[in-house]
Design a binder for these strands. Sequence first.
DNA 1: TCGCAGGCGGAAAGCGCTTTCCACCCCCAC
DNA 2: GTGGGGGTGGAAAGCGCTTTCCGCCTGCGA
Lengths: 341, 341
Amino acid sequence: MPRTSSTRAPGGAVTLQQVATAAGVSLATASRVLHGSGGRRVAEALAERVTAAAAELRYVAHAPAQSLARSRSTVVGVLVHDIADPYFAAIAAGAMGVAREHDLMVLVANTFRDPDLERDYLARLRAQRARAVLLAGSAFVGEPFAEEVAAFAESGGRVAAIGAHGTGIDTVVPDQYGGGRLVAEHLVGLGHREIGVITGPAGLATVAQRLAGFTSVVSGPRLLHADFTREGGRTAAHELLGRHPELTAIFALNDLMAAGALAALRELGRRVPEQISVAGFDDLPVATDLTPALTTVRLQLADIGARAMRLLLDGEPGGRLVPAPAELVVRESTGRASTLH
Amino acid sequence: MPRTSSTRAPGGAVTLQQVATAAGVSLATASRVLHGSGGRRVAEALAERVTAAAAELRYVAHAPAQSLARSRSTVVGVLVHDIADPYFAAIAAGAMGVAREHDLMVLVANTFRDPDLERDYLARLRAQRARAVLLAGSAFVGEPFAEEVAAFAESGGRVAAIGAHGTGIDTVVPDQYGGGRLVAEHLVGLGHREIGVITGPAGLATVAQRLAGFTSVVSGPRLLHADFTREGGRTAAHELLGRHPELTAIFALNDLMAAGALAALRELGRRVPEQISVAGFDDLPVATDLTPALTTVRLQLADIGARAMRLLLDGEPGGRLVPAPAELVVRESTGRASTLH
DNA sequence: TCGCAGGCGGAAAGCGCTTTCCACCCCCAC
DNA sequence: GTGGGGGTGGAAAGCGCTTTCCGCCTGCGA
């Protein structure tokens, strides 16, 4: 039985060399046994000695050294706007599950919708020789995007995105457009004609698409920009109703803002859905617990994250588009347009 | 001006050597210029040539190689139960902010409260030579904890935890006990005597502490174990009231379960707070939007995450304890105990 | 019995970077 | 004018691992 403390390197870490010595084999053999899969076979007896020694010494391979030698690392990056936003948390969770199946670790970074930050993280990920990066909601809509991504791809990493699909990039495309249209059809079907829309940050592809779907059915809704946060939704609702008291329905482009809108309506004493209907988008867990329970569009976020990660790790990269369905979930916050207002 | 494509390595990545060559200096000089801080000075003119060449070639240092040479990496790990749980998402977000200030990347992993998974990730983080790891809600309450952590620390990494403080580990200690007591005092102050508690997963330190705080004021409450999820809270509330219809208040040990409990009460037609009061714990964003708005205990989660990360990166490690306050937030879900039930 | 092929262990050459150590050059002092 | 010292650039030795290539040994066939 090898000594434990005396064989430890000063840094405290056990090296392959130490394992090899303890097992009485060469470095190369030890490497072959522990990494195994590389074509070559090692005699049973030796392999066992190595495995035993490794376990005994609690050997853990030095990942940076492996990355260097193999010139590929075992980490993937996930870039989100803000992990504290449940929308992205759900996506990240889905992606992390798949990454684990592939024995990869996940670096998560908040870009806060800041192109500079995103560029910076992309460079850092490139520095880490991250095997891949998932852009879950990129700040880039147009071309600058392509350039940064190209640099990453050129150094051997794979790139996939959710939503805003750039040129030739594997993308999971949630049906934002379809979702917007479903809401519009639903509201129109209930007799609503005067509808206000609380939109998200300008320049976000998600926003543009949801809105486009909506306006494909309802022309010229009252628009007000907000920032995808609950508070933003609340003040926007106040303002929207101040300007257009005739509205019989509000469509908030995400659930967080819808929650804020409901709060605003409560403050104004407007009953939902009797006096005014409210719809959201995303079907976050919170949607069920709002009062009234929120009519919204369900995106299977965890699944979307998982698919994106699979796009990143399986198959041949290059411009694949995976659609993800949007589904209307009718709850209690929408009802027939009231004739009086 | 150096050629761009012809100097690129086959892998697509630019190496320091290429930058050095392009700038007409040695590898060593290039390294000194780009890493700079290492004591030695380089003549102005050369430094500029190197910087220019690096920019020109879009050079990004190979992080694994740096980690290997310096024997320290630039990543830190954050282990959470589930990033999709808003409680942990908030903590992670806080931690990530601080990590960014220190130019570190954050590896996030879901342990799902599984000790084996946690052990596994700890080993992987050790393999990455992660500079530090934050255990935000560990699965380990007792001793096995110490052993795994010791292995990590022995190989040069720092460890900090949130909540369950192990021997000699830097820890941010949210005042779970105090929070539990605040709820108890609040409910008792409102005249409640028959109180049910929906607890979390057995063996979680958080659960034990919140409960201990509560029972330090209220002896022998009706207990029912659940799993910290909304659905768990809902079924638990149903069961609790089935068994003990005389309850005038329910304390759910986290907000998610409180949301479930409110749903259950709605299903049962029990009015909150007129007929029965409900309190939660955590003050998640959703608390405000529940109906009625939830009385709960506020933990400053992002701040807790940030402090923990600072503990990890600043100062001398070893057994520091940073308390984080718990604050009662009284909203509408709690009221005077009804005399009739 | 000898030759050759196949199998398997080991030596060694990197992977890209940091950092020590050496050598050189310039300048100052004697 | 020459010797020595400080400062600055470069060569080279690793960091821990993978992987090619080499050589040995074994076993089989003739």
